[in-house]
Computed example of a mutant assay.
Amino acid sequence: MRITLVQGDITKQRVDAVVNAANPSLLGGGGVDGAIHRRGGPAILAECRRLRATHYPDGLPVGRAVATTAGELPARWVIHTAGPVHSTREDRSALLASCYREALRVAGELGAATVALPAVSAGIYGWPVDDAARIAVTTVRAAGAELETAVETAVETALEEVRFVLFTADVHAAFARALKDAGG
């Protein structure tokens, strides 16, 4: 599995699955969540409402992930993950790492070969960008290593590329530093 970085708009990525930094309500919000819901159209919201009515009546738990259609996006699926709000009083790093692990787990279950990821929690949820990048990159690299081990033990996986799609130059630069620091 290769990790790539792109500065751009995640809603324009031609991939199998786009990961949404979702509001736990699953009903849309600001930032990446709002952009995905706007560009993807009403089919995404309709599936999110069904999920709320059936599996997640209290909303998607922080650190978990669930898939829906991608609607009008140039992808097959949207994988929604609810990121944690940053706190200076409580270490929520494990929850942020869980967002990436869970998104990749769901992508694997779907058979996705290419996945586009945003900088979860690094926007309106206030996570410091350098730390968010470090957690994201190290978690995805570890998940990639686990997938390679699984392939060696005859468990098949389709995941070939994880693409971090970062909206601004400063966030892209933070992820580039984190990827370099992680040896990749």
Rank of each mutant, 00 (worst) to 15 (best):
M1S: 14
I3K: 07
I3V: 15
I3Q: 03
V6C: 07
V6I: 10
V6T: 11
T11F: 04
Q13F: 04
Q13I: 02
Q13R: 10
V15P: 00
A21T: 11
A22N: 08
G28K: 05
G30W: 03
G30M: 10
G30C: 04
G30T: 12
G31D: 04
G34A: 08
I36Y: 02
I36T: 00
I36W: 00
G40C: 03
P42F: 01
R49K: 15
A53W: 01
G59H: 01
L60Q: 08
V62S: 06
R64M: 11
A65M: 01
A65Q: 00
V66K: 06
A70D: 00
A75W: 04
A75Y: 08
A75L: 04
W77G: 02
W77T: 02
W77E: 04
V78L: 10
V78M: 00
V78G: 03
V78E: 01
T81Q: 00
A82G: 14
A82I: 14
G83F: 07
P84E: 12
V85N: 00
V85H: 07
T88L: 11
R89H: 07
R89K: 11
E90F: 04
E90G: 00
D91I: 06
C99H: 05
E102G: 02
L104S: 14
V106S: 04
A107P: 02
L110W: 05
L110Q: 09
A116K: 06
L117E: 03
S121R: 08
G123M: 10
Y125V: 01
D130E: 15
A132W: 15
A133L: 05
A136M: 12
V137D: 00
V140C: 11
V140E: 07
G144F: 10
A145S: 14
E148P: 01
T149L: 14
E152G: 15
V155G: 00
V155L: 14
E156F: 09
L159S: 00
E161D: 15
R163D: 03
F164V: 06
V165P: 02
L166T: 05
T168H: 13
A176L: 13
A176Q: 14
A182I: 15
G183C: 13
